[in-house]
């Protein structure tokens, strides 16, 4: 039954990069391709599950960006999965004091066979530091909170035990006038015991799964 456990995480949004940590400049459009996933032991190698998504983001104001994403790997499995949200800068960085941003979002999904639909709210909180000669880098530290609202498993009387999934993340973004390149490491579902999940995840003390993600954004 190993298959079930290993491949399922493609649906989890916690298994993608933070959508946006730092808002885009006003009226700037960005399209990004995101790849990566939790690390698993695959034979003798350790590899990330190759999850993918596409994101479009638009800077409404200098401090607010709206975005939407399509989870392309989920689509291959006949599941339409999108997320919609916004990133707002709540504190601007100053010297060694980091900037802070918050990204509330909703994740919506439906399968194309039975049209079972789901909604999961999510909130990302991040602190970021600009650095580099022309401040063309920023690194960030934050956490993603994913909420499961259902009290029962679909079509059953069985109880849904876990309602909050906490995923700390750390990453770095390199910014050029046309591009943003992001590398992120995330500890997905760090508050959840993953020892009973045989996906061969690389967790910490039998909790969650460590993942590696990359994102490349082009400005328009």
């Amino acid at each position: 039954m190993k298959w079930w456990h290993t491949l399922l995480t493609f649906l989890l949004c916690a298994c993608s990069t933070s959508r946006l940590v730092k808002p885009l400049p006003e009226k700037k459009l960005g399209i990004s391709c995101n790849m990566g996933g939790p690390l698993i032991k695959f034979g003798s190698a350790t590899i990330p599950i190759p999850l993918s998504s596409l994101t479009a983001a638009y800077g409404l104001k200098n401090h607010t960006t709206v975005f939407g994403s399509l989870h392309t790997t989920a689509l291959l499995f006949g599941v339409g999965f999108i997320d919609l949200g916004m990133t707002r800068s709540i504190v601007k960085p100053k010297g060694c004091i980091p900037g802070f941003s918050v990204s509330p979002m909703i994740n919506l999904s439906t399968d194309f066979r039975k049209f079972n639909s789901k909604l999961w709210p999510q909130v990302d909180l991040n602190a970021y530091w600009d650095y580099g000669k022309s401040k063309n880098h920023f690194c960030y530290l934050g956490f993603n909170n994913w909420f499961e609202l259902a009290r029962k498993l679909p079509d059953t009387e069985q109880k849904q035990e876990q309602h909050w999934f906490l995923s700390p993340q750390i990453g770095n973004t390199f910014v050029t006038p046309k591009w943003r390149y992001t590398l992120e490491m995330k500890w997905s579902a760090a508050n959840v015991n993953s020892s009973y999940n045989v996906g061969n995840y690389i967790g910490i003390k039998e909790k969650g799964a460590i993942g590696v993600y990359v994102s490349i954004m082009r400005y328009f």
């Binding site: 039954m1 989890l12 499995f77 399968d111």
Partner: peptide, 24 residues
């Protein structure tokens, strides 16, 4: 014994995911 595909899916993903997302 497994309970059903829904419980298998939930155990694997941690969330209340409909089994129809991954299986017929």
């Amino acid at each position: 014994p497994y309970a059903n595909s829904t419980a298998m899916t939930a155990d694997a993903s941690g969330i209340a995911l409909p089994a129809s997302y991954v299986t017929k």
